[in-house]
């Protein structure tokens, strides 16, 4: 009896907590969305819901001659998906190699990668720019995909490796005894087990491609090749008359694919979560 009451209390408290968290998360987001409907260029409005609403910014987003939003959108989609796939592959094989095998230089490599991630990024951009210029890859999407994917190794490696570390060693040994070679073990056993980690890497790289404007604006020259982030940033940065509300409208569109991807990838979380949940 007592147990049930305390359970109820806990559950109620949990829901309240979650509701509070969601309010806190969504309030600024709601502000951004609402300001995309507000006339004028500023994000500022004296009331939460603007005094007058307009679709002008959305219209401008698609009709303006200066903006090629559709093209940018599709560009970004392309870059994001390719980066997501390539980076997931790279991170997984690197993490797997470093986690499950022992060889000389292993610990040194790990420390090295850790250390590499600590350099402030923007100074190295000039060097990457020249490198890409030598390879003739400037103003291409391939350059972005490559840089994003390899860059994500540095950031995601430890997530992936930590994950692999927690998988029991027994599984591989059992498979090897059954005669499976290294490659088979990797593809048939390790990969399926590592779904949550794959999801994490995929999601972060995908999002990264949508929001990065620093590197993308350095590499992409022609307007037709821009990604959404570059286009929107350019709009906000031109002159002193920054067009924030248009940016807000664009941001709403950026948020859509990312949220959708997440909703789709959620199922890989679910299977584990319910199983691991506390009981009673």
């Amino acid at each position: 009896m007592i147990a049930r009451k305390s359970v109820k209390f806990r559950v109620m408290a949990s829901y309240l907590f979650l509701a509070a968290v969601v309010c806190w998360s969504l309030y600024p987001a709601a502000w951004v969305v609402l300001s995309s409907f507000k006339p004028g260029k500023s994000l500022y409005s004296e009331t939460f819901i603007p005094k007058s609403l307009t679709l002008a910014h959305y219209v401008e987003l698609f009709q303006s001659k200066s903006l090629m939003f559709t093209t940018w959108y599709l560009n970004t989609l392309e870059v994001a998906v390719l980066s997501m796939l390539l980076s997931t592959l790279l991170v997984t094989i690197t993490a797997y190699a470093l986690s499950r095998f022992r060889f000389p230089w292993r610990k040194a490599s790990l420390t090295l990668i850790l250390v590499l991630g600590m350099f402030p990024g923007f100074m190295s951009m000039v060097a990457v720019y020249i490198l890409l210029m030598q390879l003739g890859l400037l103003d291409t999407h391939a350059a972005l995909v490559i840089v994003y994917s390899f860059g994500s190794i540095i950031f995601n490696l430890f997530v992936a490796k930590g994950f692999f570390d927690t998988l029991p060693k027994g599984i591989e040994e059992a498979a090897r005894i059954d005669g499976a070679g290294n490659f088979r073990v990797f593809t048939s056993i390790m990969l399926p087990l590592s779904k949550p980690m794959l999801v994490f890497v995929a999601l972060t790289t995908f999002t990264g491609a949508w929001v990065d404007f620093i590197f993308a604006s350095l590499v992409l020259r022609s307007k037709e090749k821009w990604t959404v982030a570059v286009g929107l940033y350019d709009m906000v940065n031109s002159y002193q008359n920054a067009y924030f509300t248009l940016f807000a409208a664009g941001a709403v569109f950026i948020a859509i694919p990312i949220t959708l991807l997440f909703m789709y990838l959620q199922r890989f979380f679910v299977s584990g979560l319910t199983a691991g949940a506390n009981k009673g």
């Binding site: 949990s14 929001v211 929107l232 691991g276 506390n278």
Partner: peptide, 25 residues
Amino acid sequence: SQKEVRLKGIWRTLIIIPYAIPQMI
């Protein structure tokens, strides 16, 4: 992660939204 909490999918999606909006804006 508690078992008794329902509609996990929806909660998770709502929580993730700040991440989906470009930091700049």
